[in-house]
Design a protein around this nucleic acid. Sequence first.
DNA 1: GAGGGTTGTGTCCATGAGAGAACAACGGTC
DNA 2: GACCGTTGTTCTCTCATGGACACAACCCTC
Lengths: 238, 238
Amino acid sequence: MDLEAGFDAQLDKSGVGFDERDAGLLRAIDDHGSLNAAAGALGRSYSRSQRRVVELEEAFGPLVVRERGGSGGGGSTLTDGARDLLAAFERLTAEFTGVAEVEETVLDGTVVERDGELATVETPAGTVRAIVPTGSRRVRLAIRADAVTLHTPGALPDRETSARNRYRGTVSTIESGDALARVALDIGDDTRLTALVTRESIATLALSPGDEAVASFKATATRAIPAQRDATDERTDD
Amino acid sequence: MDLEAGFDAQLDKSGVGFDERDAGLLRAIDDHGSLNAAAGALGRSYSRSQRRVVELEEAFGPLVVRERGGSGGGGSTLTDGARDLLAAFERLTAEFTGVAEVEETVLDGTVVERDGELATVETPAGTVRAIVPTGSRRVRLAIRADAVTLHTPGALPDRETSARNRYRGTVSTIESGDALARVALDIGDDTRLTALVTRESIATLALSPGDEAVASFKATATRAIPAQRDATDERTDD
DNA sequence: GAGGGTTGTGTCCATGAGAGAACAACGGTC
DNA sequence: GACCGTTGTTCTCTCATGGACACAACCCTC
């Protein structure tokens, strides 16, 4: 199934959203030195672009320094605020593309104990500590492969790390890419945890299929969602 | 600055995007047992909703089983494919809200070595291994607080874990919430790394401000973005 | 066979986003 | 002082999205 995750990032302030389109506009202004040239290069109308800049500035503060007249007729440059905003936006999109691309393993489970937003969940692979939205007993946990760290078995003292979830298993497959590798770890009861690590780590841990290994991940990095509604099938049916 | 991160998640297939609006429609169909009632409950027009379902099915396969006539006039129910799609979408939005909410520390640095998408970056806090888009020397690293695990100093044998980045520092502040806590760690040269851990972890590590601690995070979990463009100021200027 | 509530169409209209064009104001350079 | 390429402002036009409405087809119940 070529199901691809996408998104539309947005930075909100005072009800106005700064999105990819706005980022492109600011970048073009920075590149071309004028709002007019920027709009032209983007194939957008000047009037709309100008309006949009004003709209954005009403929410985010001064973004563009305009100069009218003068040699060359004038021009526009970005303020430091605009650069900060752009940087924050790019950081956000980078994080989003990260989650959109990375693989994750899903575990179904039931909440057995809760302490605020944190809960212990019973899953086929064992008990997991995770952040769980309040008010749901049956949940589905998602663990991103880039959040799972691998260890040699027995190496990790139990009390001296903040990674609350820890599972021993046997390496089933290792798919090596350029510099990264995808490791699948069998953790009993037919569940398989995948970790994304560097090839360097594979080497230093001396991992190969069949070996024992320990996988750990933080409670704060595993997100839970309410489980399928068909489990209870509470249809309204009018 | 009350700058809030937002997003619009989307699952793409065959050029069609399944978004929050579509998810709401499917959920409403599941709740009310008919497309008609679903559209009514959402305050949307039936005709558009029906068309949208057809559009989605052309890309994602059968989603809704329609029944025309019969007792009660008929009705519609979701297929297993629709439930899977909904679950995948909810998982995606859960992950996105995770990154949108969590705090991150940013580090500016320069790439000193590269191996495919992986690179070693020199930062004020030391050298960091991270995933870096090709073709950029000056980069900005973003490290999410939920990706940082804390350890007692000296506890971690160097060769036996896959967390490639490891920094010793002193705890500066601990902000405890309900079940979670936010720990700021001073890592020399005026840089501060923040970690989001459970209060439970604070207790077992016996952490308090002023203590020494070690923070670690994976190379595959730290994303880099090209640094500010004003550093070189390569304006086109036509 | 009539009734009823559904699925399927098709058409019309309101709304909003954005392009395009026109024009005034500006302030350096020549 | 004329010129020029900006910014700023306003208008109209087009296009896409989506609601409102009408109507046929369906099939079980009564």
